[in-house]
């Protein structure tokens, strides 16, 4: 094991964390403002990836595909909000879980209907192909660094949006008192649709970015969705800051765990079993971390003050 290899894995972890943040930010925003638990968020991630792959194949440009993914995911989110989600705000969590579970079935099967069962492929844009030399002598793919940068940029943009703009002010007001901002004349129904579409666009963006390093296929959103849930539970549901720290914690823990634990196990057990035991523990590691955090702080690391 070398330092360079560890650095590479650390960067992979951060990259995973940044993507998780894009998912988790939408989820936590939607929960914070509307009190809604949305399982179909992973489907919007998938919509983004499919839109990007299709449009990129059609026009030959990844960048047009990326814009298309934002539009497609935001549009899908807005439509779903207007038709279905809107009716769920004053229902209990059980109804929300079920209705959005039903939406997953429809989105997954619908996508398979439109695009077939074979995965689509999305090429990394020429501008971002190639690798960058890391200190220590190894090379790291430029595209993954670009993902980290894009994620950081979006995180900053989101922060500015929420803390510095009128829309952000309304979102924050919606988080602390829904009835009051309605009474003050804010069109709350439109605000909800906008927040939902914003969350959807973030998920679609993440899907498109990740689509270029994995295959674009039905069901790709589900593992990410569950990780994003772990992130917002760790961070405190409704907290964007919690989502950011939680996402980085989960991303790095998961990646480094898979890398280090099998090696760590070598100190205790023979090599044949070390890989097996280390791998098994590593695949459960983030859930163990989550259980420990919730056992100590049942409302996550940064619980919203008012809830």
């Amino acid at each position: 094991m070398t330092i360079a290899l560890a650095l590479e894995q650390l960067l992979n972890g951060i990259q995973l964390g940044v993507m998780l943040f894009l998912m988790a930010a939408g989820l936590t925003l939607i929960f914070g403002v509307m009190g809604l638990i949305n399982l179909a968020h992973g489907s919007l991630y998938m919509v983004g990836a499919f839109a990007c792959a299709t449009v990129a194949a059609w026009t030959g440009s990844f960048w047009i595909g990326l814009v298309a993914s934002l539009i497609a995911a935001a549009a899908a989110g807005a439509i779903v909000e207007l038709v279905v989600i809107r009716r769920l705000y004053d229902r209990d969590h059980l109804d929300q879980v079920l209705a959005t579970f039903a939406l997953i079935l429809m989105f997954s099967e619908g996508t398979r209907w439109l695009f077939g069962s074979f995965p689509l492929y999305l090429d990394i844009p020429p501008l971002l192909q190639g690798a960058v030399a890391l200190p220590g002598g190894t090379e790291y793919p430029l595209y993954r660094l670009a993902i980290i940068a894009a994620g950081a940029l979006v995180a900053f943009g989101l922060y500015m949006l929420i803390s510095r703009t009128r829309l952000g002010m309304r979102i924050r007001a919606g988080e602390s008192d829904r009835e009051m901002i309605g009474a003050l004349g804010v069109d709350i129904r439109t605000l909800y649709t906008v927040v939902f579409a914003l969350g959807a666009a973030l998920a679609g963006f993440a899907g498109a970015m990740v689509g270029a390093i994995q295959s674009v296929q039905v069901g790709m959103g589900e593992p990410v969705l569950i990780l994003a849930f772990v992130v917002i539970v760790i961070g405190g549901i409704g907290s964007i800051k919690g989502a950011l720290l939680g996402a980085l914690l989960v991303g790095v823990t998961d990646t480094m765990g898979r890398f280090l634990l099998p090696k760590l196990m070598l100190l205790f057990v023979p090599p044949a079993q070390a890989g097996m035991i280390g791998g098994a523990i590593a695949s459960m590691l983030i859930y163990i971390v989550m259980a420990v955090i919730l056992a100590v702080k049942p409302r996550g690391l940064f619980p919203p003050a008012h809830a």
């Binding site: 638990i37 969590h93 879980v97 772990v230 539970v233 859930y287 989550m290 919730l294 049942p298």
Partner: peptide, 30 residues
């Protein structure tokens, strides 16, 4: 014992996460 310390949406998600933990254990244990 761990999950019931939480409630509401946290409970939904923590039970989901524990089930995933068992799932990944079964997948990765050859």
């Amino acid at each position: 014992a761990i999950s019931l310390r939480t409630s509401g949406v946290y409970f939904i998600m923590i039970t989901l996460a524990f089930a995933q933990m068992v799932y990944y254990f079964a997948v990765s244990w050859p």
